[in-house]
Design a protein around this nucleic acid. Sequence first.
DNA 1: CATTCCGCCTGTAAGC
DNA 2: TGCTTACAGGCGGAAT
Length: 280
Amino acid sequence: MPELPEVEVTRRTLGRGVTGARVLGARVGKPLRWPLGVDPATLQGRRVGDLSRRGKYLWMPLGAGPEDDAPVGGLLWHLGMSGSLRLLAEDPPPPPGPHDHFDLFTSAGVVRLTDPRRFGAVVWSEAPDRDPAARLLARLGHEPLSDGFDGRALRTAMAGRRASIKEVLLSGDAVVGAGNIYASEALFRSGIDPRTPAGELGAVRCRRLAQCLREVLTEAVEMGGTTLRDFRNAHGHSGTFQQVAQVYDRAGEPCPRCEHPIRRIVQGQRATYFCARCQR
DNA sequence: CATTCCGCCTGTAAGC
DNA sequence: TGCTTACAGGCGGAAT
């Protein structure tokens, strides 16, 4: 499932190829989570700017069109559960398959969103700080890879929260980017019991968690992300982080640190994997 | 305000 | 073998 590293890998691999290209048109397939919100024909002639990422959202600026008064805007992309973005340079591009639900035709190739479960979205917005993008980005927490993020910022953001640290990490309103895989992995690395109420974590453990979260996300980006089934980067290549995950989806296997069997519990209707001996 | 739950999807696997 | 059911999960929005 695409979490921060997968979106960042997509941003890098897609941005390298598509930035500066001209939009030629778009094809809208089956409905995604939200409607595009604009007539695809109005995108024609716009120039693709630098891709940026906020949490698991990708922002693609589309500069003014051929007419001088055309507003600057962009597309906000989300990969949902099973989405991936490819840049297809072949001419003509391969015909869309049954799970290809959006094509952005550009002078550099086709940006194609493949998303079997259709939890993803592509939404037009006139700016990232105007609706509908603003509404979707408004409640997001700290960027874990930004300079300002540390244990203090994390602790402040979680003050008073009685929900478990695992659920707060997943909620994305204290810190963004961790989904089910990286939340379990970061908690394992930091030795914190996923059931601990988030507000009870002191300065020391918050600092450790912030550091471990950064590390695990950074390593995952360097490994091209995690590919359990669907994820591919813009060139169609899989990630390899799943090979070094220490607890995720490893219930019953020995803990890599202490050999104690890894447990699987359910928190907020989601699976959590942890070592009950190493994590307290 | 904080927290919990629902619903959107479809591929996969377990159960009958 | 074939059908049914359960499950996985990101996350906004409604309900509590």
